[in-house]
């Protein structure tokens, strides 16, 4: 097997809050291989976005900090890397795109200025060369008439186009890894499909790995080769996509999949939901964090924390659904 591009081990991220220290990400480990697309799935507040941000050293500090673990990328540990060196990496080796296409671009500068700024930060280009590359890139992500569009301001573009501009900026310096944080959540369904297709196409073309952070299992099913399910700051299950959807093993994953409405099946009385609610990160149970809501709970689950046993297909559960 090839060497992983990114190797995250025991990553822990903490935030100081008024009520105390919150561990938003607690001992997360995973590998990302070159050119693969991996989904990082979970509900709001499970730590998926924080995991994504920590890969680029973008945890707001204070109140946040990386409390432990390592992020190995390109032969160095990004947790130990200085801010200056991280800046070189951001946008050139690892890029990130965000959920809010309405606000993620700077409203008072043209698309062109913003793209040229990014290009010239990382590449020794003249302004004119950078502009040509930016126009090129915009054409690449499917923006019609890029030479004209580049003069426009973000508010003159539609949501889908803004997200395409973000993608063009993110890819303009040829990153090896793209962290896409809910890139399509704010878009309507048709645009969503187009943008996802674009990301998939570009990924092959640019030969980069993509971490797709999302709460939408449908998006994961469509685009990813592998997925990691997060719950309460921990990865509870990781598996290749077919396996995850066909034979989920962790009760939380099963619950998630069951609560998706299906068109072809007969409509049940009510959509099944996972009972109970996510525990407060300030008052976590000693054992498995899902124990209180779990149908398959054992005594052991309430006392000990289950660990994720493998990297490619595993569930952090003492009583998983048999494979």
């Amino acid at each position: 097997m090839t060497e992983p591009l990114l190797r995250v081990r025991d990553l822990a991220v903490e935030f100081d809050t008024e009520q105390g220290v919150v561990r938003a990400v607690d001992g997360v480990s995973f590998d990302i291989y070159p050119e693969e697309t991996v989904g990082l799935v979970g509900e709001s507040g499970c730590g998926k976005t924080v995991t994504g941000l920590s890969l680029l050293g973008l945890i707001p500090q204070p109140p946040g900090r990386i409390a432990g673990g390592s992020i190995e990328f390109g032969g160095r540990d990004l947790v130990q890397t200085s801010e200056d060196e991280m800046r070189e990496i951001r946008g050139s080796d690892i890029s990130m795109i965000f959920q809010e296409p309405m606000t993620a671009l700077n409203p008072v500068f043209t698309i062109g200025t913003q793209m040229v700024d990014v290009l010239r930060l990382h590449k020794p280009l003249s302004a004119a060369q950078a502009r040509r590359e930016a126009i090129d890139m915009l054409g690449h992500v499917g923006i019609p008439a890029p030479a004209r569009r580049i003069e426009e301001y973000p508010h003159q573009l539609s949501g889908g186009q803004r997200q395409r501009v973000m993608i063009a900026m993110a890819l303009s310096c040829g990153p090896k890894l793209l962290v896409a944080d809910e890139p399509t959540t704010a878009l309507d369904v048709t645009t969503q499909a187009q943008v996802l297709e674009q990301i998939n196409k570009l990924q092959e073309e640019f030969r980069m790995a993509v971490i797709l952070v999302t709460h939408d299992l449908g998006v994961v099913a469509e685009t990813c080769r592998r997925a990691m399910v997060m719950y309460c700051g921990k990865i509870v299950e990781t598996a290749p996509i077919e396996e995850l959807f066909a034979r989920p093993r962790h009760p939380y994953t099963m619950g998630l999949l069951n609560s998706i409405p299906r068109i072809h099946e007969q409509r049940p009385e009510r959509l099944p939901v996972i009972p109970g609610r996510v525990p407060d990160l300030l008052h976590l149970p000693p054992g498995c964090r899902f124990a209180a809501r779990c149908e398959r709970v054992l005594d052991r689950c309430r006392a000990e924390q289950p660990e994720l046993s493998g990297r490619d297909s595993a569930a952090a559960c003492f009583n998983p659904e048999p494979a």
Binding site: L58, S95, V118, H122
Partner: peptide
């Protein structure tokens, strides 16, 4: 945040 994610000093 976007600008920082793209390495803006």
């Amino acid at each position: 945040r976007t600008a920082r994610a793209f390495g803006m000093p």
